[in-house]
């Protein structure tokens, strides 16, 4: 907290942040404004001219059944991804925290999925669960369930949820592990002496103390599921079957670049932009201040 600026010249600080501002303007602000502008225009079929249509695209997407379906898909998908990846990461972190021998190997292995490119991860899962050649699909069939994400909407949704969660577990695991290791050992010992069973110790002492980490990860995971899973879904189900795994981000791509409805696609991306802004505000307001216990 400097009372006065440590710089001698008044312009120097502005000069120093100029590259950052230039990058932000060129790659974030300008495209965003462009999207807003595009969302108010309608192109002709050949892309040669466009005309101003006001908010018509916005009105249209909210009357479009496929958009509402994408909204519901996104809600189901992001809830599923967040719950599965947080729960499994916490479980793995609690177990890793107990490991004494070979802890580094164990941790490194668990962090690996994070290094896999989203599209590659998608292909791995696609192969494993492929109804014709997939190993996992084969075993599920033996167990008596006819797995086929190519025609069953529910199977397809489960597949993308697990694939997306699998990639995010590493990240959550790291934060949970750091959170667990920050809890003083003596607190757990005190709880043990206070007669709390390991289960009770976890739910009454460890889990409440992890709540700042959990809340932070909750927001990060929702943002991930909303915006960072395009490549993975595209490589696994490509939104199918029949749009049952088409999320909002995927629909922006499909409508804009496959359907070439640039105006409508832009309107969708502006809606997404508003959502990500809202989530960012939540993150800053609550996470930066930390959840109080």
């Amino acid at each position: 907290m400097h009372q006065s600026s440590p710089f001698n010249h008044r312009l120097l600080p502005y000069l120093l942040v100029l590259p950052q501002i230039a990058v932000t303007l060129a790659f974030f602000i300008w495209p965003a404004l462009n999207a807003v502008w595009l969302s108010t225009r309608q192109e002709d079929a050949f892309g040669l001219s466009s005309e101003f249509v006001g908010l018509e695209h916005y009105i249209a997407i909210f009357h479009d059944g496929t958009y509402t379906r994408a909204l519901v898909n996104t809600a189901v998908f992001s809830t599923g991804v967040t719950v599965v990846s947080l729960a499994l990461a916490l479980l793995l972190a609690v177990m890793a925290d107990r490991v004494v021998r070979g802890a580094m190997v164990y941790k490194t292995l668990l962090i690996w999925p994070y290094a896999v490119a989203p599209a590659v991860a998608g292909v791995i899962w696609w192969l494993a669960f492929n109804p014709s050649i997939g190993v996992v699909a084969y075993f599920i069939n033996i167990l008596g369930y006819d797995w086929n994400h190519l025609i069953k909407a529910r199977d397809a949704m489960m597949l993308v949820i697990f694939a997306a969660a699998w990639k995010q577990i590493s990240y959550n695991f790291l934060f949970f592990l750091a959170g667990l290791q920050a809890i003083p050992r003596s607190l757990i010992e005190a709880a043990a002496l206070d007669g709390a069973s390991p289960f009770r110790r976890f739910w009454t002492v460890i889990f409440p103390l992890l709540s700042p980490t959990t809340f932070f990860l909750l927001v990060v995971n929702i943002i991930y599921a909303f915006f960072d899973t395009f490549a993975l879904i595209h490589a696994t189900t490509a939104g199918g079957p029949a749009g049952s795994t088409e999320t909002l981000v995927l629909k922006v791509f499909m409508d804009g670049f496959v359907g070439l409805d640039l105006g409508g696609s832009s309107a969708q991306s502006v809606v997404l932009m508003v959502m990500v802004m809202a989530l960012t505000v939540v993150q800053f307001r609550f996470v930066e201040r930390k959840v109080q216990y």
């Binding site: 003596s186 607190l187 010992e189 005190a190 709880a191 002496l193 002492v205 103390l209 216990y293």
Partner: peptide, 12 residues
């Protein structure tokens, strides 16, 4: 019952 050096009170 044990009293710890850092007190080990449950902060929440």
């Amino acid at each position: 019952a044990m009293v710890f050096q850092n007190y080990a009170l449950y902060p929440h």
